[in-house]
Write a protein that binds this DNA or RNA. Structure first.
Lengths: 181, 181
DNA sequence: GAGACACTGTACCGATCGGTACAGAGAGTC
DNA sequence: GACTCTCTGTACCGATCGGTACAGTGTCTC
């Protein structure tokens, strides 16, 4: 189990760098320093199981570090600030790409549609909850939470496209002001 | 030449749907109803040349329909409104994905880095030009143009991730109000 | 009709794909 | 030492990958 815990982040980076289709078993084997025998011992379901477990781990990380505080923190403004800080840290200030977004844009979305949709749906719902507790109307909370998610995704795309991570940092700063206006 | 003009959009849809790595010659051959012989007759450089020419055609379309009006229109507000209308139409109200963004997120970005960066750089510069002519400060124009590009990209990602094209339409409407505020 | 030319289908190339089979290696138990 | 069980490397599978070779095919020119 602890082996798997060390494996999943490595798999995640391979999928991030090459996408689902582009992450060949040879690349995965190289990144993990594990032969196919070991790989298929841990993941009998092959590549699809690897990606599914990586997505589940990412989801669990966000659930614990981002979504739950947004839903439960007594101080919603603090939870929102913590979300932005956590997001900045998770995406390495714009130098790391969102695997869920990468999969959403690719052909693999069909396979992982539920995981992809659920991730963003729960994020948005949690953010709506926090925004409502700051006193915003349901409509305003919903609109701003949608704005927040697409801003983060768009900033990651643009930062990578222009090879300028500062775009992401600026977008997060603007977003903070917009969310709590 | 006219054959090639009919070919490039078909190639574009294959790359959009499967990404650069995922677009196999078999898929391309099927989508274009052309055998490998014909494909390599038109594109001796293979898949890479196909993608490069598709990107160039996309760039030319935006240059003519979006960027040039933003730079040259006597009425900058009208050009910005036309940009949003053109973008909505080009991306089929959120049902079509941005090929430049798809490539930017994938491993193929390394090959097409200049084309990808140039596309967004010229878009932003053109939008800055229009915003400045509406009387906005250089700093404000630059910030809002960056916001515009990442909003469009993020809305496309989120719309596809959640399988809800309305996200894109809403984002464009909000963006319009924000740009001309 | 002869020749040139742009285009096309098919067979084929070596490499790599995801996945399987299997014989161990190593550690723990009795 | 014998057995079990988890883990590992390697050889191998058929399929597909991007790309090449080449013999046509039709059309147009002279």
């Amino acid at each position: 189990m602890t082996d798997r815990a060390r494996l999943l982040p490595q798999l995640g980076e391979v999928f991030r760098a090459h996408g689902y289709e582009g992450a060949s078993l040879a690349l995965i084997s190289q990144a993990t320093a594990l032969g196919k025998g070991s790989l298929y011992h841990f993941f009998p379901g092959g590549k699809q199981q690897m990606a599914a477990e990586v997505l589940a781990e990412i989801d669990a990380w966000f659930e614990h570090n981002i979504f739950a505080p947004l839903r439960d923190d007594d101080d919603p403004a603090r939870a929102i600030a913590a979300m932005l800080k956590g997001v900045d840290s998770y995406f390495r200030s714009g130098n790391r790409v969102c695997l869920v977004g990468v999969i959403a844009l690719g052909h693999a979305r069909d396979i992982f549609a539920d995981a992809v949709n659920g991730y963003f749906a729960r994020w948005q719902d949690a953010l709506v909850s926090a925004l409502r507790r700051t006193g915003q109307s349901p409509a305003m909370a919903r609109k701003r939470s949608e704005d927040a998610l697409l801003t983060i995704q768009g900033a990651l795309v643009l930062a990578r496209a222009r090879d300028d991570a500062a775009i992401f940092t600026r977008a997060l700063a603007d977003l903070k002001a917009r969310l709590l206006a």
